[in-house]
Design a protein around this nucleic acid. Structure first.
Lengths: 124, 124
DNA sequence: TCTTCATATGAAGTAAAATTCATTCGATGG
DNA sequence: CCATCGAATGAATTTTACTTCATATGAAGA
């Protein structure tokens, strides 16, 4: 069953499939931050932030650099900004319900209604 | 903690973060397939394929169309091909170890070795 | 070198998601 | 309308991932 795509991409997408990690990425779009700053901005425990930074760095979605006692994390803008744009585009064009994927429930509803009111998404 | 990115993208990436679903996407790049065909090509149970097709369709990564008793699924090429290209680019440029994200173990190793032998990835 | 601050790690418990199996639904053709 | 084929659903189990808490590492300055 294993094919190229699954082998190559699974870790990428797993790393992105987590609200904490996505929130970190979104925060880092504003600029580099150290662990404590991230932790405070997201109101999450420091250890949790560290745990979540690890796969982000492993996939090179973020880079890190030590400055004295602190370690600053920064976004890999080259590919991440493109990725966010792509998904923003996809969501606007294909996902009519407030920027989220359709749940099973809403898919049902949509089939019945044949809804035609695509919503505007916050742009990345 | 919730921010735009996390709210908007979490379902997208969760749906992609699964080997079976990635394998389905990869198969559908070759052209539309019905459920039985997918099931046989990936050597997985029909019910499993159906379960996994649902979120793919919910996120509009695939489309579906009934033809007689069968239902054919096809790839949303517009955005999916772009997505695969983007990740292929990212992986080649940033992920030196055989196209996978770095695991914790391999990250360790790499720090020590300061490895500098980026590998070539199978292109999508 | 001792202390402190910043970050990372490990292991345990908890939560969430995937897979499986049995069953149901739905469409088509006889 | 019944039988059959193809696909979808539901619920239970298993697997996987996340979170938390305690502790360790590591750098810098006194």
């Amino acid at each position: 069953m294993k094919q190229n795509l699954s082998e190559t991409c699974h870790q990428f997408f797993s790393t992105l499939a987590n609200p904490t990690r996505l929130a970190i990425l979104e925060l880092l779009r504003e600029g580099p931050r150290n662990v404590t700053e991230i932790s405070e901005a997201l109101n999450q425990e420091q250890s949790m932030i560290s745990h979540n930074l690890k796969p982000l760095e492993g996939c090179r979605f973020v880079f890190s650099e030590r400055r004295k006692k602190e370690r600053f994390y920064s976004l890999n803008k080259e590919t991440m900004e493109q990725l966010f744009k792509l998904f923003s585009y996809h969501a606007e064009k294909y996902c009519p319900t407030e920027g989220k994927c359709l749940t099973n429930a809403s898919l049902q509803k949509q089939k019945k209604k044949n809804a035609s009111n695509p919503l505007h998404l916050t742009r990345f």
